[in-house]
Computed example of a mutant assay.
Amino acid sequence: MRLRPEEVLDLELLARLHTGVTPRSAISHTTSALLWPLPLPATLEAEERGNGLIHVTRRAEIGRVKRRGVVGHRAPLLARDVRFINGVALTSPEWTWVDLAAILGRDALVAAGDALLARENPLSSLEAIQEVVDRRPKVKGIRMARAILPLLRRGVDSPLESKLRMRILDAGLPEPLVTQPVHDAHGNYVSTPDLQYREYRIALEYEGEHHLTDPVQWGRDIERDDRLRSMGWIVLRFSKYQLRQGWPASERKLRSALAERGWRAAA
């Protein structure tokens, strides 16, 4: 679920008004996540949009904001921890992610962190996230942030791709590579699977709903898979259904493909 354009404008306006009358402050926590935007679980996003509350963090030496419609926080913000987007002061993406560690579960926090490192227009880097984690040793949720940081990967295209990767790891299967290009024997580019086991020539593609509604994209996906299969690759496709009620069958299919290509689980 993502905010509609008019909802973004409304949220930006509220954020601008609140920070405008509150010196040395920044929009933070889930409000900041919505404005960057970072993916949040659908239920949490709906709750945050429906309650009309704005999270505002002031520097630690100043009192917490106490105003109707505001959830006030205090933190030792440095100048680099605040960014201005469309005139709104927001906590930086990496600072916001650490704040989310006190709120989100593992898979949701991985998805939010992967979004910071997206293939297109990344908002941050692993080094920047690590620096903020190291600088906030006592903040609520820091143990979760430290545990999740090694699970983040660069180049993920969507939150559901992150969830697919976590499902695979939870099943005790080897971790696949994320968005690495595949070339043919002559060095020509063929495809960039969402996930892949290069050693076993297995590609995993997550098909979002937009793939089904765009006939051009759908046709390109078919051609992409055909090119890989012609090179001897196994191509497995996943959707929202496979990640939910269809996961047991999907796990068996993936496990079977790996075994077929020579993978053996550790004894």
Rank of each mutant, 00 (worst) to 15 (best):
R2P: 00
L3E: 09
L3M: 14
R4G: 00
E6V: 14
E6H: 15
L14V: 02
R16T: 09
T19L: 02
G20F: 02
I27T: 15
L35D: 13
T43Q: 15
A46I: 01
E48L: 07
R49P: 00
N51M: 01
G52Q: 10
T57E: 08
R59N: 03
A60H: 13
V70Y: 09
V71L: 15
G72L: 11
L78Y: 00
L78R: 14
A79M: 11
R80T: 10
E94G: 05
T96H: 05
A101S: 15
L104W: 08
L104S: 08
G105W: 01
A112T: 07
L116H: 03
L117A: 09
R119N: 06
S124F: 08
E131P: 00
V132Y: 06
V133P: 00
G141V: 10
R153V: 08
R154E: 14
P159N: 05
L160W: 00
R167I: 02
P181C: 08
N188Y: 10
T192N: 06
I202G: 13
Y206V: 06
H211A: 03
P215I: 06
P215Q: 10
V216I: 15
V216K: 15
R220T: 02
R224H: 06
D226L: 15
G232W: 04
V235Q: 10
F238E: 03
L243F: 05
K253L: 15
R255I: 00
W263M: 04
